Simulated scan of single mutants.
Amino acid sequence: MKLVTRTGVVLTAAALSLSLAACSASNEPAASGSSDTATTGTDAGATTAALSGTLNGAGSSAQESAMDTWRAAFQSENPDLVINYDPVGSGGGRTQFFDGAVSWAGSDSALSEADGEYDAAAARCGTDGAINLPVYISPIAVVFNLPGVTSLNLDSATIAKIFDGKITKWNDDAIASQNDGVTLPDTAITIVHRADDSGTTKNFTDYLAQTSDGAWGYDASGVWPTDKGESGQGTSGLMEIVTGTEGAIGYADDSKAGDMGKVAIKVGEEYNAPSSEGAATTLSDSTVASVNGDNDLAYTINRTTTQSGAYPLMLLSYAIVCQSYDDATEAANVTGFLSYVASEAGQQAAASASGSAPLPTDLSAQVEDILAQIAG
């Protein structure tokens, strides 16, 4: 059931109460001679099938906070539907999706044509394959544990040299020269990266590869490219190591950064701290690079933008879905839930829970329209 009208107006608390009643009514058996759909009270002329059963998804741990909020809100209005989500990481989520273990995958990187993932999706979904639908925009924070220091300015080349093990002490001149007035200790730097195949890692390494003027000598990859540093499983595992290790540095979705120190990255002549507004500005300067038709909304992020306020170390996280499902109930559950996720109400709920940037209104509507075309 959609929680917004087609004009995108967020329901007030009173209207939401009415929509709950309408949803309960829609879940009652259809009258004799009618279809098994019912008109909701939130969208004139719209119909939605009664949703029930179990819907399983897996993937992005960056989406976890938002996903918990989305699941709770949607299940409260669809009590006969149980939604499960395993934040196993983007790579693990895509694998489970290809294997048919889950109905959709949450992924901080789009399907890769070069890695054969569109072919794997076609084997799972059928001829029409799968598409990437944006649902979550968020900055990636470079986090560190340095007592007494809460913020540092760093350019991309310096970040790259730190994570490649070429800068090993916190009082190195490359760091100190960008942070006048900050007392930096002679503490060894402990690099912390993800142990799993991670969309956050792919976005982070893509940023370094594109912006460090050659200081990062590796391609963008969801798998950490060196054996340097320590590794943690998932976002929570990485943050546990950073939090417990003085001198550690890592990277994580900003919603999971907690009280750790954060890096302001150099963009043009500015140093910009991670922010949802900066991530949204970067997306506005990026382009759609669809592979599987016009409904495939995979983006190429412009990491080299110099727009004022932009924060190009960001992720655009997707729901990866089949363009058609063999089972009508599965299709209804996937599209019903993800339509709420992409809606203005769902996006505002995620922003409140995780600090993410809501999808632009036109993109939100586009994702909802595409989901409406998915059949079972």
Rank of each mutant, 00 (worst) to 15 (best):
K2Q: 10
V10M: 12
A14R: 15
L16I: 12
S24K: 06
A25Q: 12
D36W: 12
D43G: 04
A44D: 08
A50I: 04
T54V: 15
N56V: 13
G57C: 10
S60K: 11
V82L: 14
Y85L: 07
P87Y: 06
F97S: 07
V102Q: 01
A105H: 07
S107V: 00
E113L: 15
A114R: 13
G116Y: 05
Y118T: 06
A120I: 03
A121F: 03
R124N: 12
G126E: 01
T127V: 11
T127M: 05
G129A: 03
V135A: 07
P139G: 05
P139Q: 04
L146A: 08
V149D: 03
T150C: 04
I159G: 00
I162Q: 00
N179R: 02
N179M: 07
L184A: 11
A188T: 15
A188K: 13
S212P: 13
W216D: 01
P225N: 10
S236N: 06
G247Y: 02
Y251E: 10
S255N: 13
S255H: 03
A264V: 07
E269W: 05
E270G: 14
G278A: 09
D285I: 10
T287D: 15
V288Y: 05
Y311V: 05
A332R: 09
N333H: 06
N333L: 11
A342R: 00
G346H: 07
G346L: 07
Q347T: 04
Q347S: 13
Q348E: 11
E368P: 01
